[in-house]
Amino acid sequence: MADTIISAGNLDFYYGETHALKKICLDIPEHNITALIGPSGCGKSTFLRTINRMNDLIEGVKVTGSLTYRGEEIYAPDRDVTDLRKNIGMVFQKPNPFPMSIYDNVAYGPRTHGIRAKARLDDIVEQSLRDAAIWDEVKDRLKKNALGLSGGQQQRLCIARALAVKPDVLLMDESTSALDPISTSRIEDLAMELKKKYTIVIVTHNMQQAVRISDRTAFFLLGELIEYGDTEKMFSKPADKRTEDYITGRFG
């Protein structure tokens, strides 16, 4: 199997009194798509958000245990969070382009990280839009406002924006749940393509999506990691009855 890129060891996470993640141990392999599944409130999104410290802004959170990215603690006191988020990008449930041009959306990250040269930015914007499989659709209107794009295009633009800072890991939090089947299928194809260069972790409520695109699946329930393993095996012969009951729609 591929090398581990993200590793959780006895990870506990609290929102105030709420114990949202309980002793999570989970190794995410490089260049794989790992799907996190489970009913609402099971902790899967919380886990995803701990990976690039998106929960930092929430009042009263507490993290204990170990969570590493390439062997280094994500929650180390001296960790540069901006740098962490450059390496670990995120795409959200609803497309959220900035109210600016398509070009500026993609160039936003690189500019933040100090890249100013026009030629260099042009290259990054084109490459990112190509990698996000949207270049052909927007190349003639890069100066147009991004909010004029369709939902599916906006989501791919958001992926391009995430790719523009050359991340290592891409976190996708239900990134297709607001999209129509064609856009969903394009994003799924894109994810399969992107995993060659990046490591992808997705949260999804769509079981068939997990089956279609992920290599490994982790099933969360009430803050615990119940089962984690090869996706095909998990969806044909799950080891835990709770996994079976969830994926077959008997609860959740």
Binding site: M207, V211, F235, S236, K237, P238, E244, I247, T248
Partner: peptide
């Protein structure tokens, strides 16, 4: 139903 697990089997 797009069955999985036992249902699929």
């Amino acid at each position: 139903q797009q069955p999985v697990a036992r249902d699929l089997r």
